[in-house]
Design a binder for these strands. Sequence first.
DNA 1: AGCAACGCCTGATAGC
DNA 2: TGCTATCAGGCGTTGC
Length: 273
Amino acid sequence: MPELPEIETIRRQLSEEIVGLTVIDAAIYLSKVIKEPSPGSFLREIQGRRISRVGRRGKYLLFDLSGGYLLVVHLRMTGQLVYESETAPQPRHTHLILHLERGRLRLTDLRQFGCVWLLPAEKSARMAQLAKLGPEPLTAEFTETYFVQRLKDSRRQVKQVLLDQEIVAGIGNIYADEALYLAGLHPGRRADGLSAREAKKLYRAVKEVLREGILHRGTSIQHYVDAVGRQGSHQDFLRVHYRAGQPCPRCGNPVVKVKLGGRGTYLCPACQT
DNA sequence: AGCAACGCCTGATAGC
DNA sequence: TGCTATCAGGCGTTGC
């Protein structure tokens, strides 16, 4: 599923491809993906606006449009956002298309969880989902002191803390498993039970796995493709996630899959304590 | 308040 | 073989 590295890959590509282009018009095939405003208003309000910047906050893609408007896209689990030729075939489960001056931007989502908002500037500054997000893990605002303190303040399992977007933005199931493996921590450990040394190790691991993911243009396990429809390559570099039964890269013991907080969780029982 | 459970969805897979 | 049940999970909502 698209997490920070996948969304960042899409952001970088779209930034190259569509900044400066104008939205000629749009087509909505599944109206519930448009959370705000109504589908009719969406079509009217997006028409003729020029894309001036493509940004990202956590797993949200942010498109700055002329007139102070902001287009927000979240791909949730199976969403794809692809910039392509107007003559490309339109796949099943395509819910929204933005026709640009040159080419089109297509939102396709098998599970229909992905969603889109179009907001004028004064509303976008107050969009609750964005306002609640914790710091960006790859910027200076995400400090070791902050993260260590948040862990110390939580009685939850450490994996739940990593997945909490209000604590740190952008980590999902894949990179949570990978970070915990790299830090040598069992995902079920209580966050406030980690030593300072362990918490610091996890801080560094979080940043490392996200950077690796970006370097490999994301992880394509099931549905993820980048903004030009290509798969990422980080699935070939995963250490434990989606590798049940395969040897741990450090000790050779088989990786196991367990259920933790309702989510499939992969770990090496020998290396993660 | 803080945390757990549920619902949203469809396609792949397991089990009979 | 062909059917049904289960699973996958980010996040908003609901409930304890």
